Simulated scan of single mutants.
Amino acid sequence: MGTEELQSLSDISQYNGLTRERIEYILQRISTLKVGVIGDGCLDMYWQADMILSELSRETPHYNLPAVVERFAPGAAGNVAVNFKSLGASEVSFCSVAGPDWRGALLKEALTTRGIDDSFVIFEAGRVTPAYCKVIMQGIQGVRQEAPRIDFINREPLSEAAQQRVVAQLDLMAQKVDVISVTDQLTHGVMGAALRERLQYWSSKGKKVIVDSRDRIGSYSGVVLKPNELEAIRWYHGSVKQLQPTEAEILKAGLQLSRNSGAPCCITVGEKGAVWFEDGQATLVPTMPVPPPIDIVGAGDSFTAAFLSAWGAGCEGPEAAAFAHLAAAVSVGKVGETGTASPQEIMSRWDKVR
């Protein structure tokens, strides 16, 4: 059957060759890996409000939200960097743009306290440090509910001059790392045409680069792409309305995306696993289901970090994806937090499902 006639994931070959010995080898190699992360760094803020303490305001007909716990962590590309540290990478460097505001200071603090090199982060006047602020209300018997999120966002694209300053930082970072992970998440974020072109240059020089992009996955060339199924289908159809793609559409999208970029592509397909596209061929890398309760927040970041780590350690695409499934499975099992996976947790996951 020709690649253009593929109708379902059952029509393509499967990879099931990962072994415990290979996982141990990959983890050992990761411990020597130097990683660079570039893209949209955000600050994730969490305020836990104890509603038992809430009082009716004297000025408005509303009850207040008494915050009793406050915590913050790197989000978006920052969370990808945290995942690399959790996997045991020897060095993790972070390149992004922050605003000269209190959130930018907290983001840098959140990075450095986790052992991430933030020296490639630049502060740009007129920019806002993106942040996702979440209020979790807790009531009687510990019942919890999340209030509408408060977001800090930029409403204009990064200037050309600022783009060039980020390109210069990328060049400095690329010279000291083995692999580069890219997170292109925000509408008016860090990743523009100049950076995309420079990433292609570094890939042509042998640097291993992987890109995770929410809305611009088709704008990158010469680098490995890692969209999920919806991101790939939205690119393929040029529309955000295609929400239930068929397996045949996913396969067509992946093959076309790989051809367009001139590089391999890895599409994650939820509980079915991932599909690796290379040289006009598609390979299904299945995964094992994770029993509930689960929390998928951050699972894509864990997959990306583990995939690039394994790929940087010398694995072929399908083997790297199989390893990444283990990290993602650990991550989704951590309810109520943006999960990561440590080497010990990955080994435990393998032993549990095999």
Results as ranks from 00 to 15, higher is better:
residue 3 T to M: 15
residue 12 I to T: 12
residue 23 I to H: 02
residue 26 I to C: 05
residue 37 V to L: 02
residue 37 V to N: 08
residue 44 D to C: 06
residue 45 M to S: 07
residue 47 W to Q: 12
residue 55 E to K: 13
residue 60 T to C: 15
residue 63 Y to W: 13
residue 63 Y to L: 15
residue 75 G to M: 10
residue 79 N to C: 06
residue 96 S to M: 05
residue 97 V to N: 04
residue 101 D to I: 03
residue 118 D to S: 14
residue 118 D to Q: 12
residue 120 F to R: 05
residue 135 V to Q: 10
residue 138 Q to R: 14
residue 142 G to D: 11
residue 147 A to H: 13
residue 149 R to D: 11
residue 152 F to M: 10
residue 158 L to F: 01
residue 161 A to S: 14
residue 167 V to S: 12
residue 168 A to N: 09
residue 170 L to D: 10
residue 173 M to W: 06
residue 173 M to Y: 07
residue 184 D to S: 08
residue 184 D to F: 01
residue 185 Q to Y: 14
residue 186 L to C: 02
residue 189 G to F: 00
residue 194 A to I: 11
residue 199 L to A: 04
residue 207 K to S: 09
residue 209 V to M: 10
residue 219 S to D: 13
residue 221 S to C: 15
residue 223 V to N: 08
residue 227 P to V: 02
residue 228 N to T: 07
residue 237 H to G: 05
residue 238 G to P: 07
residue 241 K to V: 11
residue 245 P to K: 06
residue 247 E to H: 10
residue 253 A to W: 03
residue 258 S to W: 05
residue 261 S to M: 08
residue 269 V to I: 12
residue 272 K to Q: 14
residue 273 G to D: 03
residue 273 G to A: 04
residue 274 A to C: 12
residue 275 V to N: 10
residue 280 G to D: 06
residue 284 L to Y: 11
residue 298 G to L: 08
residue 301 D to R: 00
residue 304 T to P: 00
residue 307 F to D: 01
residue 312 G to W: 07
residue 312 G to E: 03
residue 318 P to G: 00
residue 320 A to K: 00
residue 326 L to W: 02
residue 330 V to P: 13
residue 332 V to H: 04
residue 342 S to Y: 05
residue 346 I to A: 01
residue 347 M to K: 15
residue 347 M to S: 11
residue 352 K to S: 15
